[in-house]
Design a protein around this nucleic acid. Structure first.
Length: 308
DNA sequence: CACCAGGTACTGT
DNA sequence: ACAGTACATGGT
């Protein structure tokens, strides 16, 4: 077991902020088992110290958790106003993980027009159907399959993806036939716009999912995925600015606050690390919502469980 | 039984 | 470019 100080790090917020789906929390020991590709990472945080171990010697745990990011610099650069500072203060130490491109892409194809419990269920089913058995320190699960392993469409259909099954199947084929093009090194060479365009060629990958993949796997920290939560949060906090932008940019429409208006504004407003701002806003708005529900149910402490 | 969920693809203007 | 709409599935 490795023990090390974890400065500017909040394990719970990092894992539970919706950027990754394959983790399991043990309430008794406080350990999380995180499954990444074919590796299992067992990790917990006690105060400003983390303890972790990994099933693979070569797996780079520090890289996965973004320990190499210049946290102070990032926080400083996105702290543009009181609204975002409030979200940061609540969940200080939240980091953007560096996930593996294929697994991240597949996961977020599953995420479209769905909810987190079901996304998680789909990913587990896909892993069980096509992955290999893996085990670490008594924790048993399945590796996330390589794209070539997803070769049986009928079997994939049974994983509960609904109409997304054909998207994932087709994207798996493209990834396996063009693995070099979608490698970390190759895509990172491109500009944000070019990389996003490349990802959006994949079936099931639209603007929002592409931004998630760019942010969570390819290191484009300026990417700002806009889902319904972010749209609401941004409209609440920056409504006046967004409406103004939307009205100014209208050509034919009636100047509504579209996804592109929100994303465009946010990338300019928060800058180089806008994606980090997005993650704070997303997590904060979900926790706030959960707290409200918990309050009306008069069950304080059940906050996180209240929002699926 | 409606309605919703980390949107996307497709169709019309 | 932008507005509308169908879409699989499972949970309230």
């Amino acid at each position: 077991m490795n023990i090390m100080p974890a400065k500017d790090f909040n394990l719970k917020a990092t894992l539970e902020s919706g950027q990754v789906f394959r983790y399991h929390h043990d309430g008794n020991t406080g350990f999380y088992c995180v499954v990444a590709g074919g590796s299992i990472i067992k990790i917990r945080q006690i105060g400003s110290r983390i303890e972790y171990d990994c099933s693979s010697k070569v797996f780079d745990v520090a890289k996965l958790f973004g320990f190499n990011h210049s946290y102070g610099k990032i926080i400083k650069s996105i702290s543009r106003d009181e609204k975002i500072r409030g979200a940061i203060n609540k969940h200080y130490g939240l980091r953007i993980l560096e996930q593996q491109p294929w697994e991240c892409t597949a996961s977020f194809i599953c995420s479209a027009f769905s909810n987190i419990p079901r996304i998680r269920q789909c990913i587990e089913k896909v892993s069980a159907a096509f992955g290999s058995r893996i085990e670490f320190d008594g924790f048993k699960t399945f590796s996330f399959p390589q794209p070539q392993q997803i070769s049986d469409f009928a079997k994939l259909k049974k994983c509960g993806l609904g109409y997304r099954a054909k998207y994932l199947f087709e994207t798996a084929r493209i990834f396996s036939n063009n693995s070099e093009d979608y490698s970390l090194q190759q895509l990172r060479k491109l500009s944000y716009a070019a990389a996003k365009e490349r990802l959006m060629e994949l079936p099931g990958v639209g603007s929002k999912v592409a931004d998630c993949i760019l942010l969570f796997a390819y290191g484009f920290y300026g990417a700002f995925p806009v889902d319904v939560w972010i749209h609401r949060a941004m409209a609440d906090s920056y409504g006046a600015q967004l409406r103004k932008l939307a009205a100014a940019g209208k050509k034919t429409g009636k100047g509504k606050i579209s996804e592109s208006v929100v994303a465009g504004f946010a990338r300019g407003y928060f800058g180089e690390y806008a994606g980090y701002a997005q993650q704070f806003l997303y997590h904060h708005s979900r926790i706030e919502k959960a707290a409200k529900i918990a309050k009306t149910l008069q069950v304080p402490g059940a906050a996180v469980a209240a929002v699926p």
